[in-house]
Amino acid sequence: MKPASFDYVSASSIDQAVSVLSELGDEAKVIAGGQSLVAMMNFRLARPATLVDINRVPGLDVIDVGADSVAVGALVRHRRLELGGEVPGPLGDLLAEAGHHVGHLPIRTRGTFCGSIAHADPASEWCVLAALLDARMEATSTRGTRLIPAEEFFVTVFTTALEPDEILTAVHLPLLSENHHVGFAEFSRRAGDFAIVMAMTAIEVADGRITDARVALGGVAAQPTRSSAAEAVLVGRAPGAETFADAASAAAENVTPHGDVHGPAEYRVDLVRAMVRRSLTRALGEG
């Protein structure tokens, strides 16, 4: 469990980092927190010829709060989002709540938000959050910067729309108004494990009716996914146990997960039902 040999470049600027990537293409890998990459290198499942370390690149450890969105830079650690205080409103609450469930404390202290999204595990809290909020991923290369919507970004397990010469320099998330209620629920075998199934919800309530609903699921497909079926059930109805149960059933009826070592496909379907209902219930502050 020692990595195969590799070259190491510590980039001092984003220009330097992308020029190395431009030169080496998929022979090079970007390292920030290294919480997934280093383990994969130790298992020799990943054998990058060159590591481009961006930890010393100035300006990437920034949480940039704008009028209606926030940009989370490539060196922002999970722990910072978990501790909160920087991102206002319900989005900040959701980042803190979901952030608490990312791995264990040492992982959260070193690993990065953007690194988790670039790694694209479909059961990752941050990938599900990106899907939930239609996040836009800021990809930078020598060719310039482009924004990739979440829907296009997550291609399949561990695979994104990033080109080999691009760095995920920031993720842009929309701020949520105070009318939004956010909820999160996941089930994993042990605390800190990747979830077997995860649900994240954001619902906007006005005059006792749900006016906007977002429901995202992790662990049920090759990408984090939105449940349009659940969202359709929610919009226009009054929030409450019956509404949430109906939405949870709609979510469960519209997933086609695979069975694995943790249990048969039907188990995940039932977990979707439970996690969606629980996340909606928690969104409304009832448990």
Partner: peptide, 13 residues
């Protein structure tokens, strides 16, 4: 005992 076993028992799955 895996959680899926308990789930299956309680849900007749």
């Amino acid at each position: 005992v895996a959680p899926a076993t308990i789930w299956a028992t309680l849900n007749d799955a």
